[in-house]
Nucleic acid binder design. Structure first.
Lengths: 225, 225
DNA sequence: AAGAAGCCTGAGATAAAGCTTAAAATTTAC
DNA sequence: GTAAATTTTAAGCTTTATCTCAGGCTTCTT
């Protein structure tokens, strides 16, 4: 899952980025409103975290512009102002939720999950066949047997399963899991698909990830067409 | 374990904070109902201690709002009023327990322990494998052999064991054990993990704390998946 | 059937995360 | 006020994850 943080204070931005990466998100950071808006409009994020008071273009203005461009990406705004008025302003401008600073990291995570969950409406249990993954504890089970994955392996598998029964193109994978935007002819994806297949095979979940030649990969729910 | 005290009288608030910190709790204090409610809603505490008579928003109203927001955090209320009526009022508003002022600090501690114990319903003895810890006396036993820990070591181990079989991320650990919110660039956790591992190893409980690279640590109950 | 394009995989290089140690800073105890 | 204990910082070292690359294999096209 790919997030964009627009926050000018380096301390907070760094803390957020590190913490969210621990949770296996791919995180971009912009330090002012203008470059943040640029990134938001030119890339496909799963969620934006926008501070209220930022230079070059206020958080509220970023919200408005993003919505004006037709994007429905969930937006969480961070604010020190906590009057009702500000909250109304923010939500009116197109934000989906807000958090008052100072906040606790876990609350942020919970709110992010809410947004991402409502995005994939019907689907809040992440599983495919006998495989199930738990983003909260970072665990993967094949039946009752736990599989140990590295962070990148987990992020890739999570992305594939969140998009199960849909083809994931190589460019989307590289954007959402690796956070690489420019065209580069890397074969990391291939390598990690191999890693995953090997571990899944060893746990009895072989053949879950299928190759769509020339396009990408797909995880299919067994029993579906 | 992280507590929030909402109490307007600085003398009592300070006394509680100091005393509870000696017991290795991470303690925040709010001096009125409004700011207390804010903190309670934006952070994840393990327990709230709320005085009845506080400015800006009464203790009972704080309780109601917290419950209304869906939080199940244990709430202990402090009151000078000791009529049955008041108690019923408080408990109806969502409090879990109450203490009449003036109270003995030991009694408060005991009641806090009760609340924290019922939190992990299924398992109220804090243990993992042959290791068991006693929050009341701050003792740690590996089998029958006692291990001596410093306060921070104990707090860290307690947090890990209270969350056993769950991954504790670095950011959660730093928030709940150190009460630090915006410092991503410290290696205290690593150092303390080393301290703990060394002492546990010497007592024959090696290998209890496992590293989840890129994420944090986990204590697993041996014999579980 | 042969060539081309895309994919897989193993080996090795690079980078990052975590571990350990020592020493400085802080707190506590006497 | 001094000494001891605890906590924190910082640096070098170790381990592990990540990535690159090259050669081989598979699938598709003609």
């Amino acid at each position: 899952m790919r997030l964009l943080i627009i926050e000018d204070e380096p301390g907070i931005a760094g803390f957020l980025k590190d913490g969210l990466e621990e949770e296996y998100f791919a995180v971009d950071v912009a330090y002012d409103g203008k470059s943040g808006l640029d990134l938001a409009l030119t890339n496909e994020y799963d969620l934006l975290i926008v501070d209220w008071m930022i230079p070059a273009l206020s958080g509220i203005e970023v919200c408005r512009q993003v919505r004006k461009a037709g994007s429905l990406v969930p937006i969480l705004f961070l604010t020190a102002k906590d009057t009702l008025e500000d909250v109304v302003f923010g939500l009116d401008a197109g934000a989906n939720d807000y958090i008052k600073k100072p906040f606790e990291f876990e609350e942020l995570l919970a709110r992010i999950r809410v947004q991402l969950r409502t995005k994939n409406k019907a689907d809040d249990s992440l599983s495919a066949g006998s495989l199930s993954i738990n983003p909260a504890t970072h665990q993967v089970f094949a039946g009752s047997c736990e599989i140990t994955l590295t962070p990148k392996e987990f992020a890739l598998l999570e992305y594939l399963i969140r998009n199960k029964d849909r083809v994931c193109t190589r460019s989307r994978i590289i954007e959402h899991v690796w956070d690489i935007h420019f065209d580069s002819d890397t074969s990391v994806i291939d390598v990690y698909i191999t890693f995953l297949r090997r571990k899944l095979e060893a746990a009895g979940c072989g053949n879950l990830i299928q190759t769509i030649r020339g396009v990408g990969y797909i995880v299919r729910e067994p029993g579906m067409v």
